[in-house]
Design a protein around this nucleic acid. Structure first.
Lengths: 195, 195, 195, 195
DNA sequence: TATGAATGAGCATTCATTCAT
DNA sequence: TATGAATGAATGCTCATTCAT
């Protein structure tokens, strides 16, 4: 097994253990056992538990970002993109939630570098969503004069909360992504002349 | 100082330390020092670190719920209530975020009882928001045929994400709560005949 | 309540708790509760937990010694004295065992002074038993040429072990003290010409 | 060093510290230091201080029993066996006393299992002594009509008390084991027709 | 005098990390 | 390179003792 593969093996095992137990209750021995290797071996590839956590986290956010960017860069319509984006978010919401919680809850664990990566990815992600909004404007689906920050927040917020509730409540059946999109586009208010 | 006051002092000190350092890095001695009392004294009022955490958390969620319910029960219009609600949420978003993170990130810490309280408060809060939506419908501000779950998620999501970003990015200036409300009511899409 | 009475109350309460839980598991608060007084009050009468223990112990050994000496000083025959002695020892074997165990097991607890008292009492007690043996010799019941130390050990040993087993095994029914005495006097061997 | 040897090293070190200081004053760090290893290492071999204590104790009582049984099973005469038995008891009386004291004084420390072992060994030991008495009867040295329980108590009692005093008083010189045996066989009384 | 709230020294135990093999 | 036995720093909690009331 190559060095790269061994690292990846450790990261994936660590990820599983971190998600299951959280950072502080995840023991190095748990990770080693999950990976089927010795405790000492982990230290041949990583300097500390913190480093494993950071790397697992960095990999996951970068990976998530790449995947969502892929979706948003396809040659499809605004609505299709948004639906695919929601679907993707739903699929990774469990793992994301756990990681985000660890990340947020243990600020002290996160080195400056990791924070920078997270920040950059968030910015890029927001930019991607703004691009999507621009596309929506070009397609005459989104109004041109809206507050884009607000709309980004709304897209993120509704997906996190609505899909999160779905996961949390263990609801069953198909999610109507189109209704989510309509809600964002049309709002919930009576039609008005002026706003 | 009465027993109740001493408990409250400890809880507030603990809250500050938990928010700053997270559960696992908060030392009992930190809490004692913050409260200006001896370590042993804490154990006169609480059985364990976990119990302090639970109590601090329970108090805060119940307290938050009470305050938001107060706002939502005032004799004011739909728009005014929603604006006040957003304002309130902004004010407590920092503490809320930290607690929620600790709560979510350390599921193992939270006893069945606390989970029940959290769950109940969440359900009640959602019901309060549904009442608010009903009021909006009565006031002919909200359409009658919308998916109320979706709208609740949107209210929660936009407030968490938009206000959260505001706090996280340390933006300055006044937040335009009315624009938030308009976004939810009118959506971001071009006006359409059918939806 | 006089000071002396309060001291005695504390000692008796402490004794009960020490016997039940042993020195290290006996808490000052247990003793205070048993005595129906406040923790602080104990320190008005004793300097430390160790001192309470010592005093309780001293009192008990002196007391035990006094009572056994009383028995051994009565104007009765050798056999009667020995039987009464055994009976007395049986009655106090439980408390004695517990105290002795604490005493022996926690040598470090016992101050030089207490050790001296214990030693003196033991010596005196042995002397009393030697006097008893002399009386037995005078009464022509005990042979004159025996090793008195050995006989003292035998009296102590058989009473401790035989009666101790009785207590430990929770045997019921009457103990035949005369048989104990006969065993010591006659031994268990076949009669021999010379010994 | 093998795992077994390391365990044994820890047990022996613990034994020494328990004997010197008693259970509650024996610190894990004392035991580690005595063994010349780190504190943490002890927990690689034992789950808790209590477990070390139990194991040290179990080993010692079983070991003691085995050794005394060995003596009592030799093809030697009644007197020789008894003399060897006393000699053996003398040699292990110090360690035995300390352990027994800890055992008795800290009932709460001793698990059901350990109590069972102790009880079984005691029963077996008493049976071994009864066998010895039977042998004495066969050899026409012990009278057939004696109370065997009483004689067992006398053997145990005299050895504990007489030898214990010897150890306690730090007497010097050789112990006359034959005189002990004679005392048990002949008693201390004047010869009588009837008893 | 009597009290009990407050205290902090002290210790068993955990687990990330090291390093000899 | 891979290992896991060995380590000891770090911390929650207990409880004898103090002292303000």
């Amino acid at each position: 097994m190559s060095d790269v593969d061994k690292r990846e093996l450790i990261i994936q095992s660590a990820l599983a253990v971190f998600i299951e137990k959280g950072f502080y209750n995840a023991k190095i021995s748990d990770i080693a056992e999950k990976a089927g290797i010795g405790k000492g071996t982990i230290y041949e590839y990583f300097a500390s538990k913190k480093e494993i956590f950071e790397e697992a986290f960095t990999g996951t956010i970068v990976n998530n970002y790449e995947k969502s960017r892929e979706i948003l860069n396809k040659k499809t319509s605004f609505r299709e993109k948004l639906a695919n984006y929601f679907e993707y978010k739903y699929n990774c919401i469990t793992i994301q939630r756990s990681l985000a919680e660890n990340f947020l809850a243990h600020g002290e664990l996160i080195s400056r570098n990791i924070k920078k990566i997270f920040f950059e990815q968030t910015i890029k992600h927001n930019e991607d969503l703004r691009q999507l909004i621009n596309q929506g404007i070009d397609e005459k689906i989104v109004r041109a004069n809206i507050d884009k920050d607000m709309m980004v927040s709304c897209i993120l917020g509704i997906s996190n909360t609505y899909l999160g509730t779905w996961v949390f409540m263990k609801k069953e059946g198909a999610i109507d992504y189109n209704k989510m999109i309509d809600s964002i586009l049309d709002g919930f208010g009576e039609k008005r002349e002026e706003n």
